[in-house]
Design a protein around this nucleic acid. Structure first.
Length: 392
DNA sequence: TCTGGGGTCCTAGGACCC
DNA sequence: TCTGGGGTCCTAGGACCC
């Protein structure tokens, strides 16, 4: 039976939440991200700001240069957005039981066979948008198609507040005129390669000589790309995805050479990662150290443990040993952090198999939001003092 | 001139094993 | 002196996405 997949994407999510919460900011260019004048980037910005060419991942200094004086700059309140996101996902449960949350502001829903219960795809889509608006007062863009790729591209097709349905027999006509950068996995490096081959649109990729793509992208990359160009993609919606890693890193406001600061920062990261691991019942057998020096030169070092752990001290000791075993002392460090991977047990599901949700103690939840808020408070504000020893 | 943070997935070489 | 062909795990780096 053919599937119907819906993709939902909140419009300028962080910025929209801020404008909703602060009506005096609506209609104005608004940037959620680092503090102006400091190291960092734009996380999200309002549509008013986008008109000045500002976008996600742009250096905050560049955004300041482009925006008028009345622009608003706020730092992210991740805990708050996470709570809004939770209510959105809850609202989507009323549309379909098969909801896959893919990020804080995006979800896939399997909406196959809802036509007899609800109506045609357009009606299902409008219901989803209404459910979100009723729950949190925000707009979302919705795309519906025969698989994840088409649903995702459909949701991007008319933004903001869009609704696009692509029936199976319209897939190729929908895809063909799109720029090839619309395809998943084509980014800053791959797009120029394809452009140099004279390819611009999805249709160009679809009709390209497979051997030519093979030569420049490798066998797997080439077939993945051409599958997409033909509208071939997964239609599976997974409700119980399991994370594969936990990590914590920070960029210092000024590059750091002081060993105590690096050590303390790694200790902080280990505590954050360890706490998250324990809260989620995970133990990792691999610790990864990440370091970025002045000039953006980035390295990772990892080691496998004899036994999986979620202990702050053990995670810290491994990461610190990895740092010490390299001849890196005295090199100015821009960023440092660590990660934990390699769970010992295969994927404990988010909710258990019998539908009994694990009751989450209030104190843990509070601690989680505290943590998220402390992260957002620090966003783009890393300082030498950051690593100040924290009482366990 | 700058370039966050949290992720996923892929590649590629070497070790190791059968 | 010459030495296969997988398969899997480990490690480092990098592309990409939100």
């Amino acid at each position: 039976m053919s599937k119907l997949v819906m993709h939902i994407d909140l419009d300028a999510f962080f910025a929209a939440v801020e404008q909703r919460d602060h009506p005096e900011w609506s209609g104005r260019p608004l940037v959620v991200g680092a503090d102006p004048g400091r190291r960092g980037v734009v996380a999200t910005c309002s549509y008013e700001a986008r008109r000045y060419g500002v976008h996600s991942a742009m250096p905050i200094s560049e955004a300041v240069r482009r925006l008028p004086a009345d622009a608003v700059y706020v730092r992210p309140r991740m805990a708050h957005y996470a709570e809004v996101s939770r209510r959105i996902m809850e609202a989507l449960d009323s549309i379909s039981p098969l909801v896959e949350k893919v990020s804080i502001d995006e979800a896939y829903l399997d909406v196959s066979g809802l036509d007899r219960l609800v109506g045609p795809p357009e009606v299902v889509g409008r219901r989803a948008k209404q459910a979100i608006h009723d729950a949190v007062g925000l707009t979302a863009s919705v795309g519906i198609g025969p698989n994840r790729l088409i649903a995702k591209l459909a949701s991007e097709f008319q933004k903001p507040d869009g609704l696009t349905v692509v029936p199976p027999d319209r897939v190729q006509a929908f895809l063909d005129p799109m720029p090839l950068t619309a395809l998943r996995g084509v980014g800053a490096k791959t797009a120029p390669i394809l452009h140099r081959l004279g390819l611009k649109t999805v249709a160009d990729v679809r009709r390209a000589d497979p051997a030519l793509l093979h030569k420049h992208l490798g066998p797997r990359g080439a077939s993945r790309l051409q599958d997409q160009a033909r509208g071939i993609a997964s239609d599976a919606v997974h409700t119980d995805t399991q994370r594969k890693s936990i990590s914590k890193e920070t960029t210092f406001e000024h590059d750091v050479t002081d060993a105590d600061t690096l050590r303390d920062t790694l200790l902080w990261a280990a505590q954050e990662v360890g706490y998250t691991a324990r809260r989620e019942g995970l133990k990792g057998a691999t610790v990864t150290l990440k370091i970025r020096f002045r000039g953006f030169e980035t390295h990772t070092r990892q080691r496998s443990l004899s036994a999986p752990t979620a202990g702050d001290d053990e995670i810290f000791r491994q990461a610190w040993a990895l740092y010490q075993q390299e001849g890196w002392a005295d090199r100015p460090v821009r960023l440092i952090g660590l990660g934990l991977t390699g769970w010992d047990a295969p994927a404990p599901a988010q909710a258990d198999l019998f539908g009994e949700a694990e009751p989450e103690p209030a104190s843990d939840k509070d601690r989680l939001y505290e943590t998220l808020d402390s992260i957002s408070a620090k966003f783009g504000r890393g300082t030498v003092q950051r690593g100040v020893r924290r009482k366990p």
